[in-house]
Write a protein that binds this DNA or RNA. Structure first.
Lengths: 239, 239
DNA sequence: GCGCTGCATTGATCAGGATCAAACGGACAC
DNA sequence: GTGTCCGTTTGATCCTGATCAATGCAGCGC
């Protein structure tokens, strides 16, 4: 994998396979955008004039029903990609969960570049397939896991992704910040915020996690946390 | 869209944008396979030596937990695509729900063809994005809808797809066959088969649907069925 | 200090679906 | 015919998580 110079994080997301020339082109059509926590990035139905990758912070994709029920359908951490070449309208609400910086590429030139760059296109396909896999993992969680297992799964996911950002494996005793409010976790998991709060309290009481303040989580024994998720614990990553 | 001659249905799925030359190449690497209802096509973790499109019948993708809980994560109707270029191992169990005929393409040559055929690659990306969208729609269903809304949504989806196979819009009074057992519907919806059965009985009692035998469904008023789904009824398709 | 606001926790109660159990009905073999 | 098998329906009961409600707690402006 190449180091992409002035734009390391987001270029890793979209062009880890592309050549120097394409990097230069990408550099020419990119621009940065920042959002405050809670600020909407896109509403469902908006015209999307850019695709983007997350540089810093967290964004969520969510679907809402008319009566206010909402379900988060995507959680975008640094290096994740927003947008869909070939589509014009945003299919979901995109909201900045924390302060957020995006590296945006104007859609038209990006698509043109993609059409000329097989590696970029196949990288996009690969990323989309990864997203599809994680969506399907998520479906198992929503459809079949108990509240208990849902919370444990979410904590395990966050701990893993947090460690991955530092290029580490999740380790016993590792600490990370909960980037989501109880309500956002509830929307992620298909629960109410009260249930989320209760389950977190229960995990704390049973010593599976420790809380430093309300947001910092310490996982003394990562394998034990995994044991609470209901997942196949030794299940190797399937590529 | 081209008519693909000897192989109309499945070619429409994978190569509606490709040229005659590519059609010929696809023809050379294809072969058919049939499965009986209930028969497994692939187990999670199997090596996949082919990609395929569904010619006739229905297949399901499902994830299973160790204790037997299972969640369907994909329902493949004629013209849907199975397999992922670039991946070696099947990520889910694939099972023939009804008698099933696949048109298979050996994976290696298919991938080589794809690498040389931008249109084929971008068509694949488009199809994958569609799948991602429907997975996310499904997540809303699993996370936030009531049993009642879930059943109605499933019936609406099946009615719509059934009509689409005949190139029609779902019409009032249209009838279609329920291709799934109560248990398969339960796995689709994240419910138990008893709840599925009760909800169907309730819809029947209230006159939203009629049952001819156990499998044939008549929808006298399609808009009324849609009204039971909890979905934004006038919500246009977002592309 | 005060009150206000936004998130989180905790409690009491309720209800939607799960679970356990029995019975039904059609297809099929004999 | 009888019996069995499988998918389905229906009933009775239980329990998980939703709902309604009160309280806690930290940050912040005044």
């Amino acid at each position: 994998m190449k180091d992409c110079g002035t734009c390391p994080i987001q270029h890793r997301a979209v062009c880890s396979y592309c050549d120097a020339d394409e990097l230069v082109e990408l550099d020419q059509i990119k621009y940065y955008r920042s959002y405050d926590a809670g600020q909407p990035v896109l509403w469902a139905g908006d015209h999307m004039e850019f695709v983007a990758s997350v540089v810093e912070g967290i964004a969520s994709l969510a679907q809402a029903m008319e009566d206010g029920r909402t379900q988060m359908v995507g959680l975008l951490l640094p290096s994740d990609f927003i947008g869909r070449p070939g589509r014009d309208l945003a299919p979901y609400n995109v909201v900045a969960v924390t302060n957020l910086t995006l590296c945006c590429f104007r859609k038209k030139p990006f698509e043109e570049l993609m059409a000329r760059t097989p590696h970029l296109a196949s990288r996009l396909l690969e990323m989309t397939l990864d997203e599809l896999d994680s969506a399907r993992e998520w479906m198992l969680l929503l459809g079949r896991k108990t509240a208990h297992e849902k919370i444990s799964s979410l904590l395990a996911i966050l701990a893993t992704r947090d460690a991955a950002l530092r290029k580490q494996k999740p380790a016993d005793g590792a600490a990370f910040d909960l980037p989501l409010t109880r309500e956002a976790m509830a929307d992620y998991l298909g629960l109410t915020l009260e249930t989320v709060s209760r389950q977190i309290s229960s995990l704390k009481k049973r010593g599976v996690i420790e809380l430093k303040g309300k947001r910092r989580v310490v996982v003394p024994d990562f394998a034990r946390l995994l044991g609470e998720t209901g997942d196949d614990v030794d299940g190797g990553m399937i590529s």
